[in-house]
């Protein structure tokens, strides 16, 4: 029972926790793109996890997961890292420089900034939730 509901953190917090890990991995991919900005023949890579996360949380435009057995977990977020199979793909682009390198430094910097902002927002939201829980545990004193 505890593994299904997950203790005092609810589903939304689990989504945030999973997203932290995924954004960290995305940051790594972006760093590798930036480091290889001059490598001939290097194709810029992307890291996609958002659609899978939507599908797992049954929110947004994702489809709900069908389960064949009632004991199979519908909400797989407790083992989310095992269930998420994110996509490392080669990012399609129109500009290929003469040596076959497709890394656009400015686009990578913009993506890195966006990733960092979303990472920090996840951390901040988790902090708020922990603060609320602490307040409740202390009974407001």
């Amino acid at each position: 029972m505890s593994s299904f509901i997950g203790g005092i953190f609810n589903g939304a917090d689990k989504v945030q926790m999973v997203s932290l890990d995924q954004r960290h991995k995305r940051g790594e991919i972006i760093s590798s793109n930036i480091a290889n900005a001059e490598t001939p023949g290097f194709r810029a890579q992307g890291y996609a996890f958002e659609e899978q996360l939507q599908a797992l949380t049954n929110t947004g435009k994702g489809l709900a997961m069908n389960v064949s057995h009632p004991k199979h977990m519908k909400n797989a977020l407790t083992n989310a890292d095992g269930m998420l199979k994110p996509d490392i793909y080669v990012r399609p682009t129109e500009d290929i420089s003469h040596d076959g390198n497709t890394v656009d430094m400015d686009e990578e910097m913009a993506r890195m900034a966006q990733n960092q902002i979303l990472f920090r927002s996840a951390v901040e939201l988790l902090n708020r939730k922990v603060g609320v829980l602490k307040y409740a545990i202390n009974g407001g004193r």
């Binding site: 609810n10 989504v15 997203s19 958002e50 996360l53 994702g62």
Partner: peptide, 11 residues
């Protein structure tokens, strides 16, 4: 909670 989930999934 819904809004923070939307941020995490990029919605």
């Amino acid at each position: 909670d819904k809004m923070s989930t939307d941020i995490a999934t990029g919605d």
